[in-house]
Every structure is written in C-alpha cells, then in structure tokens.
Nucleic acid binder design. Structure first.
Length: 433
DNA sequence: TGAAATGTTGGGGCG
DNA sequence: ACGCCCCAACATTTC
C-alpha cells in the first residue's frame, strides 16, 4: 500500500486556494483530504438541529463529490482528533499530515497533541498559514510587541501588505497527486447526534455591487448592503485571499473590516485569556445585575425597544444579525440591563451561523467597554436614536417587529434615561477602585 | 463605530 | 434705534 499524505481540513473547507492542500499536492503523491467532526466541539453544542453542522456536512458532501469526479475521495471521521489519528495510524501507512494553522486556544492545544502523536510515529507534520493574511507575529509595533489598538495596527498591516498582488494557491493543475480510491462512506448526521436543519445559507459568491457600495449602505439594516460572507470566511468555503484581493480592488471600507478580522485573531492568539476575562482587568470588577428574566427578554426580542427586539428576532429566526444591530443589542445588554458580556457572547455563539470566537469576543468586549481599543464605558447607544438614524423609514423594524406599528407592542423593559445613569454609576464605581 | 448636557452665537420679535 | 428675551442651530464638554 502506498504511503498517504493526509490534508486535515478544519476551517478551510475548499479544494482551491488552500495552502496546506496546495503544498501537499505539489510536493507529494497520494494526497487524501480528511475531515474530523471533533466530538469535543460537537458534544458542547446545545441544539441537535444546529444549522452549522448541516452546513459543514453538505459542504463535505460537495467536496467528496468533486474529489470522486477525479478518482479520489474524502475521508470523514467523528471523534476526538487524537484518537482518530491513532486509529488512522493503524490503517494507513502515512507519509505526512499537512494542515492549516488555527489560532484559537482550544485548537492550538489540540493540534499540539496531534502533532506529538504523529511525530512519535515518525510521521511528518507540516502546518501552514491560510486563514489570515498576517499571523500574530507578522504585524508588530516597533518595540516588537503586538498592537492593541486597531487604527495603528491597520496602518502597519497595509504597510506590510504593500502593493504586490496576492498570490493564490491554485491547485487545479495538480489533481494527479490525489490518492486514488473508490468512494468512501461518511458518518451520518444522526450517528453524530444531529438532525438536518432546513435553514437557508447565504451564497459564498462575492457580490461586486454590494462591495462597491459597502461604505454607503453597510450601516442600514433594512438594506442588503453587507456581503454576508462571514460564514464562508469562518468555514473557509471562501478564501480570505480572494476576499482581500476583491476588497483591495473595490472598496477600502470593506478592506478595513477584513483587517478587523486579522486584528481580533491576532489579539486572541496573543491574549488567550480574553476568552473568559476582560482585556482590561478593571472591567471584571463591574457588579453585573445578571438578571435572568431580563436576559430572557433580551434573548427572545421582548425588551420593548424596537431596534433591539428586531435584531434579536432576526438572529433567532435566521442565524444572522446585521452588524449595526449587533452593536446596538450588545450595548443594550451590557449597559441598559447590566448583564455580563459573557452571557451575550455565549448566546450569540450559539445562534450565529457566522460565529467566530475571535470576532465575537472582540465585538462583545468592544461593546462592554472591556476590550482592547473598546468604546469608552460612557459611550452608551440610545436604541431609539440608533433606530432613527439607521432605520429612518422603520423598514427593518416593521419586518421583524410587526406589532410595533399595530399598537400591541410592549412597554420598554427599562427606562432609557434611568438605565443610562445606572450604567454610568455602576461602571464608574468599578473603574475607580 | 455616541449621546446628553452645557455653552455660544445670532436672528427675530417686541417694547 | 436699541436692549432684552427667546430659541434654534451649532460647538464644546462631559459622561
């Protein structure tokens, strides 16, 4: 049996412009892509109908089909990755395992264990940069330390990026290097404890007119003015390099948003404690109210503030929320209701199809004021004013909170002026300690 | 990638 | 013609 080189796919679910796959195909023979449904991650999910699992599953079916058309296949397993590799070592003579680096704390620990296991068996492991343009140590301040403020980071990022065109990892010409095999079975969704979801997923195609007008329309939730590509960047069904190239060509504002993505991934990699601690430690002195009933009202879109409720209902029904509204709902939970940002972050993590730990954590800590380069604590969104400015016709609110106009809408859960002053008092008290 | 409170200015009504 | 007041509009400060 010939020696196989595995390419372990994780958050890079595509066959083209995928650095690990490209390098394996170019440098090796008998390359077999592998995906592992990580039971450590899946078992933590609360909803057995989680649409993201269906999305991954259907994406894998599609990749397997593409691979079968060229005489290869996709190996899919369910379990703890270290155990899966231990088993694969018994069945396959391995030449190597290639994969793209992941920067989350859980993933780095897991990948380290896998690497040790494989190297202990004499299998070469090679890892690559693929899901970001610049990794944590590639954009640093003069003093060699990481940036913790976005704007100077963004300037340096652009300086390092320069003006040479991006190189893509075009793999089409190397299909002979795939492992020849008959079609392989995949574990069923049911066998992993999941049911199929019928939720609609956004397209991974980049809409040029949306990108061109991004700076004009991105703040209006009633308008289809954002790209909705977050999910595809999360799972790698769109390459970040393709997106960056398009942004450089068409829209600076969108480019800056993509740089936020690198920024927050870099922050998470350098400061993994932000996963459960405030970037600014003083903010962990805040006496959160943590009121369960208020949290439920917020989560279910029953706060009596139409823009907040519209956002939460959009999230609950579609798995998506417009970015402007994410800021408003997050500000409302942390400031008006004085509920710990971790509660909100965790709720978004469970609902958002495009959920990405680094960005979600960064965004929540930004809203709560606890993050690096966060909004100062006294910057409190007025949900009525935000609605006036960004949904002036009320089209977004009408769509998600139809009873707002018919007069059956509930009273606000808390008075704005009162909640604002309560938040200021509570934050002030914690921060002057 | 705020909003509210406070300060300043200037036009117009009016005695 | 002038001073006074009101208040909108804008600017600055404060949270």
């Amino acid at each position: 049996m010939e020696k196989v080189t595995f390419v372990w796919l994780r958050r890079d679910l595509r066959l083209n412009d995928n650095q690990a796959l490209y390098r394996a195909l170019k440098e090796r023979q008998a390359v077999l892509p592998l995906f592992i449904f990580d039971s450590q991650i899946l078992d933590e999910l609360e909803d057995s109908g989680d649409a993201r699992i269906t999305f991954i599953y259907d994406t894998l079916l599609d990749l397997r089909k593409q691979l079968q058309e060229i005489g290869s296949s996709l190996l899919v397993r369910y379990g703890e990755p270290v155990e899966v590799f231990r088993e694969l070592l018994r069945f396959y003579p391995m030449h190597g395992v290639f994969f793209n680096r992941d920067y989350e704390p859980y993933a780095t620990g897991r990948d380290q264990q896998v690497q040790e296991l494989l190297q202990g068996h004499g299998v070469e492991v090679r890892t690559f940069k693929d899901q970001v343009i610049f990794e944590g140590n590639e954009v640093l301040k003069q003093d060699g330390k990481p940036y913790t403020v976005y704007t100077p980071y963004m300037r340096k990022w652009k300086q390092v990026f320069g003006d040479t065109p991006l190189k893509f990892f075009e793999a089409e010409n190397y299909t002979d290097a795939y492992y020849r095999t008959s079609p392989m079975d995949m574990p069923s969704l049911a066998s992993m404890g999941f049911q199929r979801s019928d939720r609609a997923f956004p397209s991974s195609k980049m809409d040029e007119s949306v990108i061109q007008n991004y700076h004009l329309w991105r703040d209006y939730p009633a308008v289809e003015g954002t790209t909705r590509l977050g999910m595809h960047l999360r799972f790698g069904t769109l390459s970040i390099r393709q997106a960056i190239a398009k942004a450089v060509e068409l829209n600076e504002t969108w480019l800056n948003e993509l740089i936020w993505r690198d920024f927050y991934m870099m922050i998470l990699w350098h400061f993994p404690r932000v996963v459960d601690q405030s970037f600014k430690p003083a903010y962990d002195e805040i006496e959160w109210r943590d009121d369960e009933a208020d949290f439920q009202a917020w989560a279910s879109g029953q706060t009596g503030y139409p823009l907040v409720d519209a956002g939460m209902r959009e999230l609950n029904e579609t798995g998506y929320m417009h970015n402007r509204v994410r800021m408003v709902t997050a500000s409302f939970l942390t400031k008006h209701l004085l509920i710990d940002w971790r509660w909100g972050e965790s709720y978004f993590a469970g609902q958002l199809l495009d959920y990405e730990l680094s960005s979600n954590n960064g965004g929540w800590q930004w809203a709560a004021g606890s993050g690096c380069d966060a909004a100062p604590y006294f910057r409190i969104f007025n949900p009525m004013r935000q609605a006036q400015r960004f949904d002036p016709e009320g089209a977004y609110i009408r769509k998600w909170v139809p009873e707002f106009l018919s007069g059956n809408y509930r009273n606000p859960i808390v008075d704005h002026k009162f909640a604002r002053e309560r938040a200021l008092d509570t934050y002030r008290k914690a921060l002057k300690k």
